[in-house]
Simulated scan of single mutants.
Amino acid sequence: MNKVLNLNNRDRNILVRSPLMADLTPSSLVKMLASASVLSFESRDILFRESDPADCFYSVLSGYVRLYRLNKDGREADIRVCGAGDTFGECLLTTGDSYDYNAQAAENITIARFNLQKVRQLAEQEHDIACAIIHCLSNDLRRTMACIANDRLQTAPQRVAQYLLENCQSAMGAASIRLPFQKSLLAGKLGLAPEALSRAFSSLRHSGVTVRGRMIQIEDVSALRQI
């Protein structure tokens, strides 16, 4: 069950630095913050379901939100995993009156909820808010195109290797990474079935990648780049 919270300093700072708000003028920022309400959800709570009437979009303040679709047989396909600072549902600011996917709390989360109609009105009044929305939609499109390209051009081990490299602090030598969420969520994020992710990690052992729970040990980052 969700709970309404007050906007604390930490959550405010995340919103202020998010792509949606980072470039707003002080007056527009105040208006956008005033239009937000803060909610908490427990792990596995459903925020909304595909085809539900849409009246809000969201920004993640803590935790992770899983966006996914279901087919008629109940099979799930993950679309995106959203973390702190990520916004989802904002495409409905320009078109659509129902959600195109399901949203579920992957763990205990805190989110900011924005009323679509109120933000539409603000965008009509404030040029920088309209530009920020366009910027977010553009980023979504570019991310989607990159995801499609990776799905078609990369093998499962290559997708996993790329994720590890993007989240690795070292450019060479040994490194370790702690996954921020369960491997089942990583599988969905990379467009893989859980068993395909396990096989990918197994194949990466030859490149010096060892998995222990959420901890990933990399013997040689340079070698991993050659996958």
Rank of each mutant, 00 (worst) to 15 (best):
Y64C: 05
S59H: 02
S40M: 11
P194C: 02
I216A: 03
T155N: 03
L185G: 06
R143N: 13
A130T: 07
G191A: 08
S176G: 09
I129Y: 05
M1K: 12
F114Q: 07
D73L: 12
D73N: 13
F181V: 04
L164A: 04
G191H: 01
N167R: 06
P194S: 02
A187R: 07
L185E: 01
M32H: 00
G191V: 05
N13I: 06
T25A: 13
R212A: 14
P53R: 08
A149H: 10
S59L: 14
R113W: 09
A22I: 11
V119P: 00
I109A: 00
V30H: 13
Y99D: 10
K31V: 10
Q121V: 12
M21W: 05
R205L: 03
G213E: 03
I216T: 04
L20M: 15
Q117N: 14
T155D: 03
P180T: 01
M215R: 13
M172R: 15
R12W: 02
Q217T: 13
F88Y: 00
C147T: 14
S198G: 01
R80I: 07
L92Q: 03
F57T: 03
S28K: 08
G63Q: 06
L179N: 00
D86E: 14
I148H: 11
L39I: 06
S98G: 03
V4R: 12
R12L: 01
L20D: 08
A174W: 07
A171D: 15
T87Q: 03
F41M: 05
R44F: 07
I133S: 04
T95W: 10
E166S: 13
S202H: 09
D86M: 06
V30N: 12
Q154V: 09
E42I: 03
T95M: 12
L33K: 02
A175V: 00
L5F: 04
Y99W: 05
C56A: 15
L141H: 10
E219D: 15
R143S: 15
T87F: 02
R214H: 11
V221Y: 00
D23E: 15
C136S: 05
L33T: 11
S28R: 04
M145Q: 15
V209R: 08
R142I: 13
T95K: 12
R113Y: 06
D52V: 00
L185V: 15
S202V: 04
R159Q: 08
M21K: 08
